[in-house]
């Protein structure tokens, strides 16, 4: 844990400095968590909702946080769970005949205003979206955020070996998808 994180945690335990420390925590992690969530839910508006819910949950449960668990892995774990729950709720509430959440996400990607990528990048994102849930999470966390397998293992509660295998399968599937689209 970095000295900055340790200081934030110390201040969070003190009622007088709790609000300021929480604000520091939000400032330190809001962007990283936002991009992590955004790659799961695709839409900016949805990512904003999930990010707010994530920090709300952090605020409510910060007293129960055990300092031996890494702060950053704990936050990523909450954000991942919130994003996946959000998608499940969305799928349940949807009146569209969707068999798979990936179809909804591909449609969201095509309609997304805040996407500045070109056609190849759009196809690449579509390939990632069409991966199975665990492979998609692992690929995004490794490829974009360069998170260590050791940390990823704590976040996703999966063995390092299984995560490496998931990444390998994800790469193969994306490669195949991109070849077929070319």
């Amino acid at each position: 844990m970095s000295p900055e994180e340790q200081k934030i945690l110390r201040n969070l335990k003190d009622e007088n400095s709790k609000n300021r420390a929480f604000n520091d925590l939000v400032n330190l992690y809001k962007q990283r968590l936002y991009w992590h969530i955004r790659k799961i839910v695709i839409s900016h508006d949805d990512a904003d909702d999930v990010l707010q819910n994530t920090f709300l949950k952090v605020w409510k449960s910060i007293d129960n946080f055990r300092s031996e668990a890494g702060l950053y892995t704990w936050l990523y774990r909450i954000a991942t769970n919130e994003a996946l729950s959000f998608l499940k709720q969305k799928q349940k509430r949807s009146i569209l005949p969707l068999n798979d959440v990936s179809e909804y996400l591909v449609e969201t990607l095509k309609a997304e205003n805040h996407f500045s990528g070109d056609e190849i990048q759009q196809k690449f994102q579509e390939a990632i979206i069409r991966l199975p849930e665990k492979q998609r999470l692992v690929f995004n966390m490794k490829y974009y955020d360069d998170i260590k397998y050791q940390d990823m293992s704590k976040i996703l509660d999966t063995s390092e070996g299984a995560l490496k295998a998931s990444y390998h399968h994800a790469v193969k599937k994306i490669e195949e998808f991109m070849r077929n689209q070319a």
């Binding site: 936002y34 991009w35 805040h114 990528g117 759009q122 690449f124 490829y143 994306i174």
Partner: peptide, 15 residues
């Protein structure tokens, strides 16, 4: 990543 990928630049943006 032994295949052609568009790179790691983030294609998403925010308001």
């Amino acid at each position: 990543n032994p295949f052609e990928m568009p790179g790691k630049e983030n294609p998403f943006s925010t308001p």
